[in-house]
Amino acid sequence: MSTTELAWFKSSYSGGGGGNCVEVAVRAEAVLVRDSKDTHSQTLAVSRDAWSAFTELAADSLV
C-alpha cells in the first residue's frame, strides 16, 4: 500500500497557518508520521506500542 492510499490525520493541535504540523496514518503493523507540508518525502514508521507510549507521555506533559 502506498502512502497516498492511507487515511492521514493532522494533529488537532496544528494551527491553520501551516507551521510545524505533522500527520499520522495508522496501519496494522505501524503508525506512520510525515511532515504535512512535504507529503512526498519519507515517512517515519514506529510500532503501535511505541506510538501509544509517545502519545501517553505527550498527554501527561500537557497537564
Rank of each mutant, 00 (worst) to 15 (best):
G17Y: 13
D60A: 15
D35E: 02
S36W: 06
S12F: 12
S11L: 06
A28H: 08
F9N: 14
K10H: 07
A53Q: 09
V22G: 05
V24E: 00
R34Q: 02
V46C: 04
R48G: 04
S11V: 06
L62T: 05
G19F: 07
H40S: 14
V24I: 09
D38Y: 08
F9S: 07
R27L: 11
F54D: 01
A50L: 04
L32R: 01
L32T: 02
A53D: 09
T39P: 15
A45L: 00
H40R: 14
K10G: 05
T3K: 14
L57T: 15
S41K: 13
S47C: 01
A7P: 10
V46M: 03
V63C: 13
V33D: 03
K37T: 09
V24C: 10
K37Q: 15
D49R: 01
T43A: 10
S61P: 13
V24G: 02
E5I: 01
V33H: 01
S61M: 11
V46E: 02
A59L: 15
M1N: 02
E23V: 11
T39I: 12
S36A: 15
E56P: 08
V24F: 07
A53H: 11
D38Q: 14
S52A: 06
E56R: 15
N20P: 05
S52E: 07
S61N: 07
G18F: 11
Y13V: 12
A45I: 00
T39M: 10
V31S: 00
V22P: 03
E29P: 05
S14V: 04
S41G: 15
L44I: 09
W51R: 02
D38E: 13
C21P: 12
T3L: 10
T39Q: 08
L44T: 03
Y13E: 01
H40P: 07
G17M: 14
Y13H: 05
F54S: 04
A28G: 06
F54R: 07
H40G: 15
Q42M: 10
K10T: 07
E29G: 04
T55A: 05
M1Q: 00
R27P: 03
A30F: 07
